[in-house]
Simulated scan of single mutants.
Amino acid sequence: MSRTPQQIFESYLYAGAMTRNADALAENFTADGVLEAPLMPAGGAFPRRLVGREEIRSAMAAYYEQPVTFDRSPNLEKSGYLLHTTSDPDVFIAEIDTVFDGDKDGDDPAVSLVQIFRIRDGKIARLRDYFAPGLLS
């Protein structure tokens, strides 16, 4: 049974951003899936391009083992996302606004990003994640 864009997105979000579980994250991808972060500088802490489920699994496990430099938790009540379907049934776009718990001055830092998903057989065949982790440092 094929998964909906909502199910695919929520599974990916939970495995990655919420639980930092590289195995679960990788299982969202096809065996030859591609995870790209085009805004990342080459050699940065976050991988710029990963090809294949196993490379995604190992590289993201290494990334998740790094110390977290941003110690605020996402505020799920203030955060949100919209999923946009396209004329291609195998492509959808996630527009995400993540709001983090405020600092001592009461500011609620926010990060906005866009992800483009290409799906095959209910799994992610290619994900372009337009996100800059440096915004959180």
Rank of each mutant, 00 (worst) to 15 (best):
residue 60 M to W: 03
residue 56 I to Y: 04
residue 135 L to C: 05
residue 27 E to W: 09
residue 8 I to M: 03
residue 90 D to T: 06
residue 96 I to S: 01
residue 24 A to I: 12
residue 105 D to W: 02
residue 129 D to S: 04
residue 104 K to R: 15
residue 132 A to P: 00
residue 11 S to W: 08
residue 96 I to G: 00
residue 16 G to I: 01
residue 15 A to E: 14
residue 26 A to T: 07
residue 106 G to L: 03
residue 53 R to G: 04
residue 126 R to C: 02
residue 83 L to V: 06
residue 134 G to V: 01
residue 59 A to H: 02
residue 128 R to H: 07
residue 82 L to Q: 13
residue 98 T to N: 14
residue 19 T to G: 03
residue 22 A to P: 05
residue 52 G to M: 09
residue 129 D to T: 07
residue 128 R to S: 13
residue 115 Q to Y: 04
residue 24 A to M: 13
residue 117 F to E: 11
residue 120 R to P: 09
residue 66 Q to S: 14
residue 72 R to Y: 02
residue 100 F to A: 05
residue 73 S to C: 00
residue 52 G to E: 10
residue 110 A to N: 09
residue 13 L to G: 00
residue 9 F to C: 09
residue 108 D to M: 10
residue 2 S to K: 15
residue 26 A to G: 05
residue 27 E to H: 14
residue 95 E to S: 12
residue 45 A to R: 13
residue 9 F to P: 08
residue 11 S to E: 15
residue 105 D to C: 01
residue 41 P to Y: 06
residue 62 A to R: 11
residue 52 G to N: 10
residue 66 Q to H: 12
residue 35 L to G: 00
residue 29 F to K: 00
residue 15 A to Y: 13
residue 80 G to Y: 01
residue 70 F to V: 03
residue 21 N to F: 08
residue 3 R to N: 14
residue 5 P to E: 06
residue 43 G to P: 07
residue 35 L to Y: 15
residue 22 A to N: 09
residue 32 D to T: 14
residue 69 T to R: 13
residue 103 D to Q: 13
